[in-house]
């Protein structure tokens, strides 16, 4: 289990992260949502030990994260790099080695990934010769070749065309079913909605809302009620605490109602509400 315990981080006068906290149970998928500049990348870098928090702590299974724990983490940074001159196979193997993998399992795992990603014909070619989509596959393989217990992906879908986004989605689902805990960030809700078990929405470096989709919905303060009558359909905003049965009874007693629907808020609405004035 990963615990992010009220971390904060400043860069000079910039308070990149003020107070972010959440926990990620083993094998679950976590969505870190927030507009650009909210502090998602900084938070992820603190999880991976690239940055040290100025306050608060990151714990893995109750222990502070050390160099050795980090060998069980994987990371796909937002800015994705690649060694242009290194061969695909060598590149994946290098990152496997850096995470403590050794032959013969290293070679087997590298081959499995190359096959899984459908890049067998490029295995011995320098990475620079690959198309952008294929390079992204290599980057995912570099991040996950050592079967991490926790894989952190920063904006994994940004810049992917629909075909490659589907391929990535399939890979992530496979990792999920293997029990890998995932942390994904995005500034676009819909990308993560189906994939994640739990969410944390941050803005201006602070938690704004967190929990499962159900939990986020249950604390959402208003509901949209769709009412249809002879003139058509209208929508009104009411407090979430409204007694809908009483409301319906009251409506029916005044005019003929053809439709009455209390709509649950979408993740997008929850998101927009949570980030408030911060730019989406």
């Amino acid at each position: 289990m990963l615990e992010v315990d009220h971390v904060h981080k400043e860069f000079g006068s910039v308070r990149a992260v003020r107070d972010v906290h959440f926990t990620i149970p083993d094998g679950t998928t976590f969505g870190l949502l927030g507009p650009n500049g909210a502090g998602k990348t900084t938070t992820m870098r603190m999880i991976l030990g690239i940055l040290t928090p100025d306050g608060g702590a990151v714990r893995w299974n109750g222990q502070p994260v050390h160099a050795n724990t980090r060998k069980h983490f994987g990371y796909l940074p937002e800015e994705r790099g690649i060694y242009g001159k290194m061969k695909v196979r060598d590149q994946i193997a290098y990152f496997g080695k850096l995470h403590g993998m050794r032959e013969p399992s290293l070679g087997q795992e590298v081959d499995r990934w190359i096959e899984r990603l459908g890049i067998t014909q490029y295995a011995d070619r320098p990475c620079a010769e690959l198309s952008k989509g294929n390079q992204q596959k290599v980057q995912v393989a570099c991040a996950a070749v050592h079967r991490p217990q926790l894989l952190v992906l920063d904006e994994p879908f940004s810049g992917l065309d629909p075909v490659n986004a589907d391929i990535l989605l399939a890979i992530l689902r496979e990792l999920q079913s293997n029990g890998t805990a995932l942390v994904l960030s995005s500034h676009q809700m819909w990308q993560l909605e189906d994939l994640c078990d739990r969410f944390c929405i941050i803005a201006d470096g602070e938690n704004r809302a967190s929990g499962t989709l159900e939990e986020l919905r249950s604390v959402f303060p208003t509901r949209v009620v769709r009412i249809g009558d002879t003139h058509g359909t209208s929508e009104i905003n009411v407090p979430a605490t409204t007694d809908f049965a009483a409301m319906l009874r009251e409506l029916v007693s005044t005019k003929p109602i053809t439709r009455f629907e209390a709509v649950e808020p979408s993740l997008h609405e929850i998101y927009l509400h949570a980030i408030g004035g911060s730019a989406a």
Binding site: R45, L48, G49, I50, R70, K71, F73, Y75, L76, P77, E79, R80, G81, I82, Y83, G84, F95, L98, H99, Q139, C142, A143
Partner: peptide
């Protein structure tokens, strides 16, 4: 090439 961040993570 921006591979640095990946390296310092591991």
């Amino acid at each position: 090439s921006r591979i640095a961040e990946l390296l310092v993570a591991s």
